[in-house]
Design a protein around this nucleic acid. Structure first.
Lengths: 147, 147
DNA sequence: CAAATAGTTTACAGACTCTCTTGACAATCA
DNA sequence: TGATTGTCAAGAGAGTCTGTAAACTATTTG
């Protein structure tokens, strides 16, 4: 039950980009060096984030990446879903990418014990990650609701 | 961010075994048939659960598996950790299998934003799964604290 | 004892994913 | 034009996931 390196790198890269929001462009190698991320892999990740509409890129001399959306409006949940897909621990409790269980004898009955507890888990995860913005995140550890 | 089929099958199998706790032995194919689980794969899972001390097995005619521990004392968190490893979404926030970050620039500083939020996530997951017993689980959907 | 039953163990196969690299290409700027 | 920087497609290598297969051991029944 792990998040991928991709997601982790994406979040770390976004710390840098949030720090430069509305300021300057950041190049791949700057981000890679500061956050210690393999640069070619990072590139893929930045591209994915760009294609998802979070970043803008500029080519050529003095080019680089910048955060397109306000860091107040982007949540960690959004970022992780872009890289890792749904937060839900099993497909049949995902709200953004629901998939019907194929082999569960309780499928469709609304009485599946597995589904019930996994939905709790999904909601707990989403409650945290969908309410945590890049601004919160880049500001570093701070008071949060309750653990 | 998915739990494996192994964990899901394990939980479904344990519903059956909890239902027969202190009653009769259940054979692989009974469990497999009722829960619609590929029998040879199920076998591996039951073995793993047995080796973890949750089940007892008996060979020969009339053999089968039974739950060894009281279903009140076994939590879903325990089961999932046996099959899928730690609940934590990244190694550096696992309480049962901590692993130091290798590439994080904040490693060891206690100021890592990623670590901070992921710890929240880990705790949210563990709070649910480590407080949900097989008895709760096999009893089916019921009132739980708060979602 | 013999045969049937049922769990045990080991091996592995196919598909897929994860992490990362490579190389050719396109746009921008000096 | 040439250097810089992002874009895109492909794939390599290792590992994991989901299962299958086959030989083995223990137990019970007859």
């Amino acid at each position: 039950m792990r998040f991928s390196k991709k997601s982790e790198y994406a979040l770390r890269a976004l710390i840098e980009l949030t720090g430069q929001y509305n300021r300057k462009l950041l190049q791949r190698h700057e981000i890679g060096r500061k956050q210690n991320i393999p640069i070619e892999f990072l590139e893929q990740i930045l591209l994915t984030l760009k294609n998802a509409g979070l970043l803008a890129a500029q080519r050529g001399v003095g080019g680089g990446y910048r955060l397109l959306k306000s860091p107040d409006t982007v949540t960690l949940g959004q970022v992780i879903r872009i890289l890792d897909g749904p937060l839900a621990p099993i497909g049949c409790v995902s709200k953004t990418a629901y998939q019907k269980c194929k082999d569960c004898p309780h499928a469709d009955t609304k009485n599946c014990p597995v589904q019930h507890v996994m939905l709790d888990v999904r909601n707990a995860i989403a409650d945290i990650l969908d309410n945590y913005t890049l601004s919160d995140f880049a500001a570093g550890p701070k008071k949060r609701s309750l653990s």
